[in-house]
Design a binder for these strands. Structure first.
Lengths: 206, 206
DNA sequence: GACCTTCTCACCTACGTGTTAAGC
DNA sequence: TCGCTTAACACGTAGGTGAGAAGG
């Protein structure tokens, strides 16, 4: 697998630190369909959850752990005839945004013994009420998730890794019904939409 | 007011730092009845919420903020004839426990611009599953809440303040019905018990 | 019996979901 | 019209309440 080969090479060159994506099978399942992530005003969580484990850290050293959402290319996309196609150039990126994980300044030993979860991170398309852990993104652009780790005593020497299999296109409403069905099937908070559910369909007025 | 006088004196002597209790009127209302806090296995939140504000910090310095639950005296209490009375000597205290607030290592400026809330702290009587922010206490003992603050660059110089008006007796079930009625009237999570509520009374079998 | 603790319950807050209809 | 965004909605997860029955 080319992605794995690239990753292994990069890690051998840079350091002995290994970062492993949890739920990789699930991410691959989404990726094979074409992952979409919802943006909204209040902020939407990332699903599948972004969780990683670390190895190769100095047990007694302290580390700072960060993540961000990295733009993959300079395209705008649209969903047409059942597939995502390029539809013009990307908007100007927003300012660099980074989320510092609350485990930061823990020891390598503590960090390696835990699953480091970014499940509280949210994606939004509204610049109002930005806060730590809320990423402002453009809709219909492609992104992927990236993790950083650095020793607290040498913060200029940062190791980062981008998880190619987490790449997704941002949307304000799901485009691909295959994708939304997989979300329903796998996200516990969507259980109300499972086939055989008891959900009533009600006429609405606004 | 004697408590205030003592506090002001202590603060003038020790430093220019001021720590102010939020919701003080509510705390006083509970205190005039005799505050009780529930202990249980999973951990019970403190209500009224323990929230404070800071002033007199160095805007650019970084601080560590902590709290703990301080034993007030060496008595065990019981509720008899509608009032709390001393009923023997206290049990041996558990080991010192401290909760480090997540805002720790923020700058003085950031801290002074926020309400520092300890609403996630829990009280328990079970030594199993202890975790950060869960305080193991003895039932039927009297405690009060205390805040610590120290500059990160001189951690040996800690300023602390005990809030006398937060003193409470721990219970596993409320003893004073006046107290529990005030909890129901003021804690949003107890709305189901408000007079005029729609709560059904159901016979239970175990 | 008296006293305290534990467990379960109905009811609440808070908020994470995709869908749908309306807005632009 | 078309394409995308927004807001309201039903329904779920998660967990914070005091009461009351049962346990010790």
């Amino acid at each position: 697998d080319e992605a794995y080969a690239r990753r292994d090479l990069a890690q051998c060159r840079e350091s002995a630190v290994r970062i492993t994506l949890c739920d990789q099978a699930l991410w691959n399942q989404f990726n094979s369909i074409g992952t979409e992530m919802v943006l909204n005003k209040v902020g939407r969580r990332i699903f599948p959850s972004f969780r990683v484990t670390f190895s190769g850290l100095e047990p007694c050293a302290r580390y700072k752990i960060m993540m961000d959402v990295e733009r993959v290319d300079e395209n705008r996309y649209k969903f047409q005839d059942g597939r995502w196609i390029v539809a013009g150039r990307a908007d100007l990126p927003y300012n660099q945004q980074v989320f510092v994980h609350p485990l930061s300044s823990s020891t390598g030993e503590d960090i390696m013994n835990k699953i480091v979860s970014f499940h509280k991170v949210k994606l939004t398309n509204s610049p109002l009420k930005l806060q730590n852990g809320k990423f402002l993104l453009h809709s219909l652009h492609r992104y992927q998730l990236r993790v950083y780790i650095a020793r607290c005593d040498s913060l200029e020497d940062i190791f980062s890794f981008s998880f190619v299999e987490t790449n997704f296109i941002t949307v304000t409403a799901y485009q691909n019904s295959q994708l939304s069905q997989l979300k329903i099937a796998t996200n516990p908070y969507s259980k109300g939409f499972l086939p055989g559910g008891t959900r009533r369909r009600v006429k609405q007025s606004r």
